[in-house]
């Protein structure tokens, strides 16, 4: 699920990026590009981690209310 969200966000970037020409090779600093793309991916990835945490808590909450086994298990894991 997570990867597909990031996919949708970044497909736009790919379309934009096609407009850029390739530049001088000798002074290429690939590390800068890695940092930039990583920061973009991380923003979306962080959101999906948060959603994951929220989702587990939500399941655990309803699990407690309805007394399901799943809810108890999640409680144990959270602790």
């Amino acid at each position: 699920m997570k990867n597909s969200i990031i996919f949708k966000v970044l497909i736009i970037m790919m379309i934009i990026s096609n407009a850029y020409p390739r530049l001088a090779y000798a002074y290429l600093d690939p590390a800068t590009g890695s940092m930039v793309i990583q920061a973009v991916i991380a923003v979306v990835a962080a959101a999906s981690v948060s959603i994951g945490i929220f989702w587990r808590r939500l399941k655990s909450f309803f699990g407690r209310i309805f007394g399901s086994k799943e809810g108890k298990e999640h409680d144990a894991n959270d602790n």
């Binding site: 970044l10 990026s17 850029y20 530049l23 590009g33």
Partner: peptide, 30 residues
């Protein structure tokens, strides 16, 4: 797509001619 295709494009895009000689770019670090 993210970690390879776009990543490689980002690497190419990051090397801008106009940045040469500007030195430290840490101010705007991601």
């Amino acid at each position: 797509l993210m970690h390879l295709t776009l990543h490689s494009r980002a690497q190419i895009m990051a090397d801008r001619k106009e940045d040469i000689g500007k030195g430290d770019r840490s101010a705007g670090k991601p």
